[in-house]
Structure formats: C-alpha cells, structure tokens
C-alpha cells in the first residue's frame, strides 16, 4: 500500500464514523424538522398532509405565539441585564481588587451552573411555594403577618418569578468567562494607568471594558441562544406555561403542541421560528455591539 493510500485510509477511518453519526443525529433531524413543518401531522405515520406554509400562516394568527415571543424576549432582556452586571462586577472584583480567597469564590459561584435545570426548578418551586416556601416565610417574618402570595400561580408575578432562578443559575459561567478575558489583559496597561493616577472606575471604563468587549459580546449572544433554547426546561418544571399562558415561551409551546396535543407539523414550525429568531437576534446584536477591535501588541 502506498503511503498516500495509507494516509487516505487513516483520515477516512478517523473522520467518517463521527461524520456518519453526525449526519444521522444532527444534519438529518435538522432537515426533517424543516420538512415536517410543511405538513399537518399528528405523528401517526399514515395521515401526513402537505399544507405548504400554512403552519407558518397559522402561527402569525396565533395570539399565544406572540405572548410566548414577548415572554422569551422579556426573559432574555432581564437575563442579559442581570447576569452581565453581576458577572462583570464579580469578575472585576476577583481580578482587580486584590481580594483574598478569589479561588474559593470562583469555585463556589459556579455551583448553580453544575445543577441540573430540573434541580434548579424544583428548588425554586419550593422557594415560591405559597404555604411552606421560603419567600413567603421570610416576607411573613419581616412584615409580621402571614403572606401567602402564589408567586407562580398568579399571572401578575409568574413571569417575573422565573427570572431569579435563571439569573442565579447563569452568573457563574459568564463570570469565569470574563475573568479569563480580564486575566489576558497585559498588566503593563494597568501599571501605566496607575502611574497616570487613573482610579478603579476609570481603569474599568478605559482599559478593562474595551479590552474584554469581545467576550462581553460572546456572553450576550450565548445568553440569547441558551435562553431561547433553555427557557423550555425551567418553564416545563416550574409552571408548564401557566397560569393561562402567562409564562408561555416558544420552547415550551413547541413541546406542548408536539407531545401533548400532537400537532407535530405546527410544533416543527415553532422550532423553525426559534431558529430564525435566534439567528436574527444574534446578527442584530453583533451589529449593535460592534466596536473598533483594539489590538494589543
């Protein structure tokens, strides 16, 4: 066997198994999702009606879709806001303030990220429990009278109640990401700023933030993508979209349509909508957050 053929065989034997599995379990499902979205289909194999783009037309007339979209973007907005401010503050505090025990804080702040989203949801469901939960317990204690607000059962509060668990569970990861970015900034920049008498805040706005902007951007994009995809899990365990669709998000609506009401075509169309929203939002944010990239030599 020539060495050329040996090389070819080697490459093929290393690339193909992965590629075949990838085609079966990623590429093919993507294509099939797009395909199913053009049908009216209960999931039973014999009655699959081709209806073109009717699922998408129906979607535009479906008020729950709008409600879910508003909720999704509500969650995204406050998550970006809450997670980024906290993660930025902790990242700067643990790198630039000369605090003690930074390794400890870094490890502990990542704890919520290690938990399954189901564990997080079960935990927070209990915190919000109207009769035995933590939150009402503390409120009763402070106010000196019994408080029994059904946080997840009252549509005034329920969507807000989903935010603390989501933010709580997100901070650690983005903090680590930003810490890594800050650590890669050359110390000499801070030293000369110090000599020039620039204080912490000025160092933050003039050195840290511009130089980690790339990672801030990555963080925002990641929060958007993971939120559009991941709100499903927390909603599924905490509220199932209720009460009266007050916490409905696209992801859970997809699951509900597909696996509870057996409208597989419509569910797939919602999936395509999630894909489009995720790509468009990412693109728009990339544009909005574009800044001159500062090269460090």
């Amino acid at each position: 066997m020539t060495s050329q053929r040996k090389r070819g065989l080697f490459i093929a034997s290393f690339i193909l198994p992965t590629f075949v599995i990838y085609c079966i379990f990623t590429l093919y499902p993507i294509i099939r999702a797009l395909y199913i979205s053009l049908f009216e289909w209960s999931g039973a194999s014999d009655n699959m009606n081709y209806i073109g783009f009717n699922n998408f037309r129906d979607m535009f007339a479906d008020p729950i879709i709008y409600k879910a979209m508003v909720n999704d973007y509500f969650l995204i907005f406050w998550k970006v806001f809450g997670i980024l401010i906290a993660a930025l503050f902790f990242a700067v505090a643990l790198t630039r303030f000369g605090m003690r025990g930074t390794g400890f804080y870094r490890a502990v702040f990542f704890f919520p990220n290690v938990l399954s989203i189901v564990v997080i949801a079960v935990l927070w469901r209990f915190i919000y429990n109207p009769s035995y939960g933590f939150l009402n317990g503390i409120l009763s204690f402070i106010l000196g009278r019994p408080v029994d607000i059904p946080w997840l059962g009252d549509s005034t509060y329920s969507i807000w109640a989903l935010l603390p668990p989501a933010i709580w569970a997100g901070i650690g990861f983005y903090m680590l990401l930003l810490i890594a970015a800050i650590k890669s900034i050359p110390a000499s920049l801070y030293e000369s700023a110090e000599i020039d008498g620039a204080r912490q805040w000025k160092q933050f706005t003039h050195i840290t933030l511009p130089l980690i902007w790339e990672q801030v951007k990555v963080s925002v994009v990641l929060i958007v993508i993971t939120s559009l995809n991941g709100s499903f899990a927390i909603v599924s365990v905490m509220t199932e979209g209720g009460p009266d669709n007050a916490t409905q998000v696209l992801g859970y609506y997809l699951y509900q349509m597909g696996f509870k009401q057996y409208h597989m075509g419509y569910a797939s169309a919602i999936g395509v909508l999630i894909l489009v929203l995720s790509l468009v939002t990412t693109f728009v944010l990339q544009r909005l957050m574009k800044k001159e990239v500062i090269e460090i030599s």
Binding site: I24, T26, I30, R32, A33, L279
Partner: peptide, 20 residues
C-alpha cells in the same frame, strides 16, 4: 459545518429526533 451546528437551537430537533 461542525462549528456552525453550535448555533442550532437543539429544541427544534426534539420532534424529528423522537421519530428518528
């Protein structure tokens, strides 16, 4: 191709995956 698949919201795959 592999890198681009990171941008796919995997939730859209639960329906086809179930049938696959």
């Amino acid at each position: 191709l592999y890198l681009a698949s990171l941008t796919i919201p995997t939730l859209m795959l639960i329906v086809p995956m179930f049938f696959l």
